[in-house]
């Protein structure tokens, strides 16, 4: 404590003795928060090593990278790979498929998370609430491989329970796994099943922070359940919703490689091809690392633009952004 007060005093003295204020402040801050900074060190090292350092390799998007020649030994080709990608006849299809899946996830899966959180929040019996909460988290811990295999079993032609049920109800004889019309519904269904429960965690935390007295007052005023949800609960968690929405839009082009790759086959590939699977085909299978990196980089830039764009929009509508 003594050091802290001392430090205050010294920084207070800065007003009297003219010194370069910034440098002084930086040093003061460093000294004062040395232990916090020390605690941060592993995080800083992690980000430098695994997040910033690899960016050095992103330059292969502008080269004809051959591993044997190394990054610097490979020929510099500039924007060639980007041009090839944007003029590629597959580009419109990839963009459309990616955007449709992203929109479905944004407009169906994301609101469902909020609905689920609100429903859980309305449960009165604590033990029931906790049990349900835990149960809906479980699918999150299954890998996509397992989820897709389960889907395969449920929709297996001839003996899958859901295959039988749906075809009986619809009076059809469809192989849902191969039908392009069923690809997107299945993807959304899997996404909702796997991730909705997990997504509620942050909303539930925000809901726990809502002032209970407001509800009591509302009840006295004669507000019903719906009115309470609409006028108290939702406005209270609005900022949380906005923050998550902004983060979600940044992920818009990341459709989730594993799920889509595992669910795609010869018959539904027209609707299943997205940027992520394209990068895999071109980059890994065809060994065009530079081209695939260019595609990935273009995708990342769009993601950054979207984050800033939504953030700006949120602020325009007098909401809090994330920065």
């Amino acid at each position: 404590m003594a050091t802290l007060i001392e430090a205050e005093a010294v920084s207070g003295g800065a007003d009297i003795t003219p010194r370069p204020p910034n440098r002084r402040n930086v040093r003061e801050t460093l000294v004062r928060y040395r232990w916090l900074l020390f605690l941060m060190l592993p995080g800083i090292i992690y980000f430098l090593l695994f997040r910033f350092w690899p960016m050095y390799g992103a330059q292969i998007a502008f080269r004809d990278y051959i591993p044997f020649l190394g990054i610097e030994g490979s020929q510099w080709v500039g924007w060639e790979h980007f041009e090839t990608f944007f003029t590629n006849p597959d580009f419109p299809r990839l963009l459309r498929n990616t955007l449709i899946l992203a929109a479905l996830s944004l407009f169906i899966a994301f609101p469902l998370t909020i609905v689920m959180a609100l429903l859980l929040n309305e449960l009165r019996l604590n033990i029931l609430k906790r049990t349900v909460q835990t149960l809906v988290y479980v699918p999150h811990f299954l890998s996509w491989t397992v989820v897709v295999s389960l889907t395969g079993l449920l929709f297996a032609v001839g003996n899958g329970p859901l295959w039988t049920l749906l075809n009986d109800v619809l009076g059809t004889d469809t192989n849902f796994l191969a039908d392009p019309a069923w690809f997107r519904p299945l993807i959304v269904l899997q996404d909702v099943w796997k991730n909705t429960g997990w997504g509620t965690i942050i909303f539930l935390a925000a809901l726990a922070g809502v002032d209970q007295e407001q509800y009591e007052a509302a009840i006295i005023d004669g507000a019903g359940r719906w009115q309470r949800v609409w006028h108290i609960t939702l406005p209270s968690i609005r900022s949380t919703i906005i923050v998550l929405l902004i983060l979600q839009t940044g992920q818009i082009l990341n459709t989730g490689f594993e799920q889509i790759y595992l669910m795609s086959n010869a018959l539904n590939r027209t609707v299943a091809d997205v940027f992520d699977t394209y990068v895999y085909f071109v980059g890994i299978q065809q060994g065009s690392y530079s081209y695939a990196t260019a595609v990935g980089l273009a995708k990342a830039i769009v993601g950054v633009i979207l984050i800033f764009g939504t953030n700006w929009l949120a602020k325009r509508f007098n909401q809090q952004g994330i920065f």
Binding site: G152, V157, G158, N175, A178, N265, A266, L267
Partner: peptide
């Protein structure tokens, strides 16, 4: 041919 020729593992 088996009906799930396009999806069978």
């Amino acid at each position: 041919t088996n009906p799930d020729y396009a999806t069978m593992d």
